[in-house]
Design a binder for these strands. Sequence first.
DNA 1: TTATGTAAAGATAATTATTCTCATTTATGG
DNA 2: CCATAAATGAGAATAATTATCTTTACATAA
Lengths: 139, 139
Amino acid sequence: MTNDFFREQLKQKGLKVTPQRVAIYEAVVNLNNHPTAEKIIDYIRRNHPNIAIGTVYKVLDSLVDNNLLKKVKNDKDIMRYDAVVSHHHHLYCSETDRIEDYEDELLDKLINEYFKNKKIEKFEIQDITLQITGKFNNN
Amino acid sequence: MTNDFFREQLKQKGLKVTPQRVAIYEAVVNLNNHPTAEKIIDYIRRNHPNIAIGTVYKVLDSLVDNNLLKKVKNDKDIMRYDAVVSHHHHLYCSETDRIEDYEDELLDKLINEYFKNKKIEKFEIQDITLQITGKFNNN
DNA sequence: TTATGTAAAGATAATTATTCTCATTTATGG
DNA sequence: CCATAAATGAGAATAATTATCTTTACATAA
C-alpha cells in the first residue's frame, strides 16, 4: 500500500522505480524516528547489503527535491529525514536526539487566523512549523 | 556596551575574557545574519588574522553551552549562530539561506494560552519556536 | 520481447565542516 | 609579579556528504 503509493509517486514525477529507492523510502517510513542517513543505511543493509552509501545520499536528496521526503531541521550537523510530508510540527527532546511528529489542525487554524490580521513586514509567509522542545515522559 | 555586557557574562560564568572570545561574539552580533563558522572566521580575520579555526569552533561551542549564543536549526549541514538568546522565532527564506529573527510577544501569549488547555500527551513543553518559511519582499 | 537510450547505482576518491591533540601562550587570583 | 589552570594555535584526524566515472538496469517503443 505505502509501497504502491510510493511507486506511483515516482512514476508521476518521472523518476524510475528502483529497488534502492523503494528500500530507502520504506526505511524512513518503517524506522519512523526521523533517521539519519547512517541509520537508513544500517536498516537497508539487512536486506540489501550491497547498496552504496552515495546512492542513499543521492536518493534521499532526490526524494526531498520531489517532496516525497522532508529534511528535518536540527541542532546537530547530521541531517535527518521524515516520510511525513503533510503539514506537521516537531517535538524535540531537550535531552536526547529524539524527534516526534506532532499534528494539530486546531493550532494551525489559530496561528493562520492570527497571521491573517498581523502581517509580517516585507515577508510573505508560505509555511509555519513549530519546534516544540521539551521532555518526553515515557520510554 | 554589548562588549561590556559580554565580558561581564564571561566572568560570571567563570570563563576567561580573551580577545578571541570577544571578537567571535562581536562578529556574530555585528554580522547579524546568523552566520556560519566560516563567515565568522572571515569577519574576524580582517582584524585578527591569526585566529585558529579550531579556536572559533571551540569558542562557539562554549558560548552556546553557556547560553551566550544559540545554534540556529536549518536544512543545511552547516551550523549557524545567533547572538539573540532571548525567546524569538525565525523567518527562513525559501529561496536563499537568509534567516531573520522574529519577535512576537502577542503570538507567544496566544500559543502559551493554547497549550495551557491542550496538553500534548506524555510530553512536557519547555520551549516553542516557530520556523516561518516564506519570501522576503525587499533586498 | 527484445533492443536501446538514458537515468540510476556502485565504487571510490574528494571535499567540507567539524573535532581532536598537544605544545605553547595567556588571563586571572594570590 | 608569579603560578597555574584555562585557552589558543597549528595541524592532523574524523565524519558526513558530495563528486566522478564506469557499469547496470529501468522503461519505452519497435
